[in-house]
Design a protein around this nucleic acid. Sequence first.
DNA 1: CTGTATCCCACTCGATACTG
DNA 2: CAGTATCGAGTGGGATACAG
Lengths: 138, 138
Amino acid sequence: MKTTVNRYPECDYKGKTRALNDAMELLQGKWKVLIITVLCCRGRKRFTELQQEVEGISAKMLTRELQVLELNQLVQRTVCSTKPVTVQYEITPYGKTLEKIVLQLMDWGLGHRRRIMSATLSVSSLPDSSSLCVQPGS
Amino acid sequence: MKTTVNRYPECDYKGKTRALNDAMELLQGKWKVLIITVLCCRGRKRFTELQQEVEGISAKMLTRELQVLELNQLVQRTVCSTKPVTVQYEITPYGKTLEKIVLQLMDWGLGHRRRIMSATLSVSSLPDSSSLCVQPGS
DNA sequence: CTGTATCCCACTCGATACTG
DNA sequence: CAGTATCGAGTGGGATACAG
């Protein structure tokens, strides 16, 4: 029983894992993909609107995450010099290139919840837990 | 200048963001997607082999992450009762359903690194930094 | 070989109060 | 309205030593 199969031999292995790390690091954290999704699917939003649509996020976190996304060119921030200033956030065309992947992740997550729920149902019922990733502790 | 576009109206918005959270939570952390990638692209591996291929991971982390992946049915663990026991880890057919998404993320990350590098090059050169996500501090 | 157990630091994130 | 500042709890993850 041999273990090393290596269907895809070397082919710049280091560069590829680094690329994966880059992508994951950028999307890491509790909020960034959600913000991206909202901006992708619901269009341009003001700060407060965003905070309402991304359920549970604090102003501090929203600010910080938006800064990262803007620095990485996924989101554009526009200040409107209205009476009290308002700020518009929108996804950039470049940010849009992530939409397809995020939507796939969403679909996968839908199926995963079904799968884990039915696998766990016999033991204990997770009614509507907002998170279901099975952890060693459980 | 109206902000609410709502190209995709309601359509179970809560359920979808929850699904996205499920997926992201499962993949969260420094190592899980890397482990998945290695098992997908390089085939069945023993514990020590995995630790060598996932560069920099400690035994503790590798154990913990593999447990989560196994509990979520992405990875199968098989103990071989050899002289000193050996353990085989392999991706499950279900885990394979993530491969497509992960490979897309990898591609995206490749492009992103190029983009950020060239955008930042004029200011400071990031030679071969293992991570490049642009952060507010920089 | 394949893990576990501990210790520990840094960082994430929430809560709250404050500002232009 | 759109943030910033500060504090503090909890956690992710590294280092090291130990175990079956």
